[in-house]
């Protein structure tokens, strides 16, 4: 390519980019307008739900307004879930006095609730267990695999979504420290 041809091409590309950058705020506004939409993704509002505990007490996500909540989907046949849950317990004990709650949602539509309850009780977990009997919540939360962890901030906004073992004790502690630091 000759020097002249390259110069013309280069300047043209630079000018197009510059005009595009200047036009972006005018043509494509609506930045961060998603905070009122419900979706299981960072930045959106966590979809609301109402479920029952094994002893038939009814709880809703909205009961925990103003508090950070970890929604943790699990099954008793899932070994990764069982490896993760004791770690959650120790963070729970640490942060529960400050209002933190864990809703451990058993995917009962593909699990045996009896097995799930006996496992949960045998481990001495003190956070809240809920049953997703018909799988409707799992559908709403686009559950592709367990464990699925959805960390919800005090304003009801999704802070983090992790599939698999990533919601470890250390990671959850770091995230909660962040949330409480921002609030103070």
């Amino acid at each position: 390519m000759s020097k002249k041809a390259f110069s013309i091409l280069g300047i043209a590309v630079i000018l197009i980019s510059l005009v595009w950058i200047i036009m972006t705020p005018i043509l494509f506004s609506g930045v961060q307008a998603d905070t009122n939409t419900f979706a299981v993704h960072k930045g959106f509002q966590a979809p609301s739900f109402t479920l029952q505990t094994p002893d038939r007490q009814t709880l809703s996500l909205s009961d925990y307004e103003g508090q950070p909540v970890l929604i943790f989907f699990w099954a008793s046949w899932c070994s990764v879930c069982k490896r993760t849950m004791p770690g959650l317990q120790s963070v729970y004990e640490e942060f529960a006095p400050e209002g933190f709650e864990i809703l451990a949602i058993n995917t009962s539509f593909q699990d045996s609730p009896t097995n799930a309850v006996s496992y949960f009780e045998s481990q001495g977990f003190t956070y809240t267990m809920l049953l997703d009997q018909d799988g409707s919540l799992s559908r709403d939360y686009q559950l592709h695999a367990v464990p699925l962890s959805v960390l919800v901030g005090p304003e009801g906004e999704v802070v983090d979504v992790i599939i698999g073992s990533g919601m470890s004790e250390a990671y959850l502690r770091a995230k909660l420290t962040d949330i409480y630091r921002e609030r103070d």
Binding site: S90, I162, S168, A170, Y171, A174, T177
Partner: peptide, 20 residues
Amino acid sequence: QNPSALAGNPKAVFSLTPSM
């Protein structure tokens, strides 16, 4: 950035989770 992460379990520094 998150020194508190190791408060309960210092071994977590070697954990294989990609989140941290």
